[in-house]
């Protein structure tokens, strides 16, 4: 089994509602993984289960092939500051920044100091008084400062202005470059974050819709437009392309498909006067979210 995080048959239900349904995944160690999907598809729940913030209904999670339970040495390899992280109401920013380094032998003080400065975090302010963007900035400081072996970033850019987001991306690359580790980041700004990612996992309705290296994922989405009749014919002849979404306007149709475009398929589309263009990763994630596709 590959080292990293292995998710084995993970299911999480709340009453009658199944959030995650028999997930089997591997997050290889030493890579930046994008955890993508629409709201409510189970991204945060999956990260909570992987970091043992909550417990699965069924299944298990292995860190480097080991269950970690209550092992403190395994637990301190994790850092997961949630998007809506709770802090003690009495804590000021400086309290949190003073205490957090004691939890990680790997703490990166230089990065922390630089990030606090770049995000202009006010040390004397009570955390609950911070703006949405400042709370995100604090979460980023803690997550990158920890240099934890397994770092989870839950929509880390919420409330950050474009400049601050740029700072985050820059510092993430810098920190990861200095010490490669496993980073799992959920995001809705897919195309903006894509250059950082090495692997992507797309969840849809609690199941894995796609897991692939970034370059492969980016090549899998196609938008095909033309005569609906010709399009249907092309899709019948090229079953490796699964139709995800379709828009029809009179006799013409536009479909988003999932599947690798071979030269033969491209030529067949050209012959059928179909226009084929790549779909952005963001478009592909949206299309997967609107389909019933499930990864094989």
């Amino acid at each position: 089994m590959t080292a990293g995080i292995s998710v084995i048959g993970l299911t999480k239900t709340y009453g009658d509602h199944t959030v995650l349904d028999d997930l089997h995944l591997t997050f290889e160690a030493g890579k930046i993984h994008g955890l993508l999907g629409a709201n409510g598809t189970g991204k945060t729940t999956l990260m909570s289960l992987m970091s043992r913030h909550t417990f699965p209904t069924r299944g298990s999670v292995l860190l480097d092939d080991r269950e970690f339970g209550e092992d403190p040495r395994q637990a301190q390899r994790l850092c997961f500051i949630r998007e809506n992280q709770l802090y003690n109401d009495a804590f000021k920013v400086r309290d949190v920044l003073r205490i957090a380094p004691t939890f990680y032998p790997t703490w990166d003080a230089a990065t922390t100091t630089r990030l606090v400065d770049r995000f202009r975090l006010p040390p004397a302010t009570v955390v609950k008084k911070l703006s949405r963007g400042q709370r995100s900035a604090l979460a980023i400081v803690l997550a990158l400062g920890s240099r934890a072996d397994f770092t989870f970033l839950d929509e880390p850019y919420l409330g950050l202005d474009p400049g601050a987001r740029e700072t985050f991306y820059e510092e993430l690359i810098r920190s990861y470059g200095a010490q490669p580790r496993t980073i799992i980041m959920s995001t809705h700004l897919v195309d903006e974050a894509a250059p950082l990612l090495e692997e992507v996992v797309v969840l849809n309705q609690g199941r894995v819709a796609l897991q692939a290296p970034l370059d492969e994922a980016e090549s899998l989405g196609l938008t095909i437009n033309g005569s609906a009749v010709a399009l249907d014919g092309w899709l019948r002849d090229h079953t490796s392309h699964q139709e995800l979404t379709r828009r029809t306007l009179g006799p013409t149709a536009t479909v988003t498909t999932l599947g690798p475009l071979t030269e033969a398929a491209r030529q067949a589309a050209e012959t059928a006067r179909l226009r084929v263009s790549p779909t952005s990763l963001q478009g592909l994630v949206a299309a997967l979210g609107n389909s019933n596709h499930e990864a094989a």
Binding site: S51, R52, H53, E70, D71, P72, A75, Q76, R77, L78, C79, F80, I81, R82, Q85, L86, Y87, N88, D89, A90, V96, A100, F103, Y104, L142, S146, A148
Partner: peptide
């Protein structure tokens, strides 16, 4: 507060429940 807020932050920072 300790059992709710601090607990949430402790888990976030890689502490076991025990």
């Amino acid at each position: 507060y300790a059992a709710t807020r601090n607990f949430a932050l402790a888990l976030a920072l890689g502490v076991t429940r025990r």
